[in-house]
Design a protein around this nucleic acid. Structure first.
Lengths: 187, 187
DNA sequence: ATTTTTATGGAGTGATCAGTCAATCTAAAA
DNA sequence: TTTTAGATTGACTGATCACTCCATAAAAAT
């Protein structure tokens, strides 16, 4: 892992544990095994580091979700695959998942460019569009469906993190909650 | 409004806008129209202020929800009343609602005492218990139902904040989303 | 081989911040 | 009226922090 990655990994770990406020850049550098100045060689400011960390983390997640998509899958299968992969990734990358939410409710959220936002939601937006064309959703605002979908993932994730079930039971919960979600939003 | 309240109100406003990191105690005091030292007369540390602000905000919300409960209401009516009141309070107190979520994903969350937690969830817990006794929920872990319930509120809130609908349409969305939720979790 | 660019280090700096403190004010109790 | 206790002030401080700067090393380009 090169130094830039080391810095990002260290920042992630410390931000989740101590918050943005509670983690000085000096501690990040130390944890990354790197000099103070090196951090600022890769990221002009601490804020830049925070935003970059968010964008890359989100990018990793979206790439993972996209990789699960199979040609020939139905819309429901595709959505279930995204839902499942989101939760599994969130459970195997808990700090990352937590950081994404932490970032979302921080003032830094406003600093994400429209371009990055578009890239990070393209996959979901595409499927939503398809679903509308196929007319399979209940007559609700698409933004509402999107919000409910997202929060359903977060809610299930929260439960799974607290419950800490064995893998098989976890799978079962993921299947069940998707079924609940699907009957909730489709006709 | 006494000085303590002024300080809490100022802190809330600034925390939501600039984050915990981005708002120095000096700015809070200034915004509250109070001297630096006065802030520390009421709150020993900045962290104490943050935690106190959370507890009082949550207390206000729970009191508001409890006040909506009517004797003789059925369980479904009671739950719908909590759901509706949560969303309406969240929309008329957006900074407060945002702060609660912001706090939830911060390291300060760990500092809430079990006692406070219990007081803040008593109302919900009671209804959940009742629902279990009446056996009206689908056979799902009660913690899962609780999580899904909470996140459903957040998801709907997020949509309503972004959509900014007139009051009547807003009411309609709240009714509809409760119906969706209710059919999702009950038998 | 030489130049240029990039990477790394770490001591140093000015600014900022959380929290202190001694002085003053207020108002109620004695 | 006098005392006492709490409220309020704002200048002050020691610590900390984000970030700079310059020296050096490594790598790339010429």
């Amino acid at each position: 892992m090169d130094k830039e990655q080391e810095i990002l990994a260290a920042a992630l770990k410390l931000f989740v544990e101590f918050g943005f406020h509670g983690t000085p850049t000096s501690k990040i550098a130390k944890e990354a095994g790197v000099a103070n100045g090196t951090l600022f060689h890769y990221f002009k400011t601490k804020d830049d580091l925070i935003v970059a960390l968010y964008n890359r983390t989100k990018e990793t997640l979206t790439a993972h979700l996209a990789a699960q998509q199979r040609d020939g899958d139905s819309l429901e299968e595709r959505m279930k695959s995204i839902y499942t992969a989101s939760l599994e990734w969130g459970l195997e990358n808990r700090p990352q998942f937590h950081f994404i939410q932490q970032f979302h409710f921080s003032p830094h959220a406003a600093r994400i460019s429209d371009e990055d936002k578009e890239r990070q939601t393209r996959l979901h937006a595409g499927l939503m569009q398809q679903a509308r064309e196929d007319n399979i959703f209940k007559p609700l605002a698409p933004e509402l469906i999107g919000s409910l979908l997202g929060s359903h993932v977060y809610g299930t994730h929260q439960y799974l993190v607290n419950a800490d079930l064995p893998k098989q039971e976890r799978q079962k919960v993921i299947h069940e909650t998707f079924a609940l979600l699907w009957t909730m939003i489709t006709k």
